[in-house]
């Protein structure tokens, strides 16, 4: 079979005649076009598929705003693989095949805790692969269990930014280091944590500062 798993040799190794300025401006146009017309593959294994593929794609959130609404069932026609859900040992070779079948340039977004690290099933599970990066290279991680559609949009925008800044025609197979799309710049993790503690103490019987000995544990 003709599957090449390593990066094939760069056909543009020799310098392309013409001024670098010309190439750079073509790069810009091509990258802009690529970033705004990502075609995702419909590949959802578990819970994240509902939030990321379906709720994000439906009318309320509307993935079409970001040019990524053309979901394709065939990997040959897609250039964005959204890993939405847990990957288990039995699925591993199939995921690899799906990825290999996609045409370059191709991008991978791993959504949800399971695809990032194995999530709730990282310990004591005999089948769950601990992160999709053990199988295929990943460009953007979107945390959450499952991530909200908004979080997925943020991951998609991160990927678009990566495409615009990153790949060039001269280096089509070059991949950048994976990025964790976390929080928009103005929100700090501490803020979220404080809000959570406030909610927990105000609305629940749970006392976060309690002494376990008083409860007789």
């Amino acid at each position: 079979m003709g599957l090449i798993n390593d990066n094939p040799e760069n056909p543009f190794k020799e310098a392309i005649p013409g001024s670098p300025a010309f190439i750079t401006s073509i790069d810009k146009v091509v990258n802009w076009a690529r970033s705004n017309s990502l075609w995702p593959l419909t590949f959802g294994t578990s819970c994240c598929a509902i939030e990321v593929m379906m709720a994000a794609g439906a009318a309320h959130h509307d993935l079409a705003r970001f040019g990524a609404e053309v979901a394709r069932p065939s990997p040959r026609q897609a250039d964005l693989l959204v890993i939405a859900g847990t990957i288990v040992k039995r699925m591993e070779p199939l995921l690899k095949t799906l990825y290999d079948q996609m045409a370059e340039p191709k991008y991978v977004i791993a959504t949800g805790a399971c695809a990032i690290s194995g999530g709730p099933f990282i310990y004591d599970s005999y089948t769950t692969i601990r992160g999709a990066h053990e199988v295929i290279p990943v460009d953007v991680y979107v945390p959450g269990c499952p991530p909200r559609p908004e979080a997925f949009f943020y991951g998609l925008l991160t990927l678009q930014k990566m495409i615009i800044e990153g790949q060039t025609i001269a280096k089509p197979f070059e991949r950048r280091k994976p990025v964790l799309s976390v929080l928009p710049p103005r929100i700090k993790l501490e803020q979220i944590r404080d809000e959570l503690v406030k909610n927990l103490t105000a609305r629940s019987v749970t006392d976060l500062n309690q002494n376990p000995k008083e409860l007789g544990l």
Binding site: T86, V88, M91, F121, Y123, D124, Y126, T127
Partner: peptide, 14 residues
Amino acid sequence: GYIHRGIEKKAEAV
């Protein structure tokens, strides 16, 4: 089995 995560085994550990 393409999404068999072994939840019943996991449940014995939590």
